[in-house]
Design a binder for these strands. Structure first.
Lengths: 127, 127
DNA sequence: CGCCTGTCTTGACATCCGTCGAATCAGACA
DNA sequence: TGTCTGATTCGACGGATGTCAAGACAGGCG
């Protein structure tokens, strides 16, 4: 593939998804499912879920790869691969500053995913 | 194999996960990640995401497989397989009544997942 | 300039996953 | 009892995924 300098095919959730009503309120359309499923998929690995959490909960809103990697019993390339997955799913942003690379969470998409899963106060609804 | 009547190894989220503070608030522990990641993984397929939505948004809170299957260009066994995945992830419950099998969403786990992804009102937080 | 450290890419491998057709199981009904 | 319909399981296939070792790239520093 020729994805050398390309800014990565990050899913554009802001443009495509109108912001999605709760999954339990109305049937999610095919297009929305196609756009949001990869995000859930990216969170569907324990390592990536923890990476996401470490990044999102970091002190300054960003986490250095140098801090992320030693937190797991995995090699650098593997962590890098998982970070790339999170990046391509639109969940995080990466920025290089000098020697180190910093990752930052994108709250917008997290909000969309949370909204999709949100349940109205009435659990069994009209039951 | 003797998994005839066995109630399926459904993840017990109520017992294991205390209910999980937001992912962006505190680093999610390894155990929590191990328990919740499969749920995200199960939602990480467009077909399953739609199935989940169809079940959760169904009129009486439950959906018949006979209504689910024709909504996709997939064979019965494939839909059945996806439903099993959702079941094993603890996202839905199945019940046979006579000829048909009905699936019902489990709001509890959806709430947990939503809570994990929830972001405090302050987007960039303490920035 | 050369080297060192940190990160990413490449290539390879075993495993997992989505899908199907065929076979099997569970009930209803004649 | 036999048969029909609905749903699941089994077995197989191609493709995707997680992981690593080795190599390449980027930037700081001697």
């Amino acid at each position: 593939m020729s994805k050398q300098q390309a800014p990565l095919p990050v899913v554009n959730l802001n443009a495509d998804a109108p912001c999605c009503p709760p999954l339990a309120q109305r049937r999610v359309p095919v297009e929305t499912a196609a756009v949001l499923a990869p995000a859930f998929k990216a969170l569907g690995d324990p390592v990536r879920l923890q990476l996401m959490s470490m990044i999102a909960s970091a002190e300054d809103g960003e986490a250095c790869v140098c801090d992320l990697t030693p937190a797991f019993d995995l090699t650098g390339p593997t962590i890098s691969h998982h970070l790339k997955t999170l990046r391509e799913a639109g969940l995080v942003d990466a920025e290089r500053r000098g020697t180190w690379v910093y990752y930052r969470a994108r709250p917008q998409i997290l909000r969309q995913l949370a909204a999709l899963l949100s349940i109205e106060s009435t659990p069994a609804s009209r039951a």
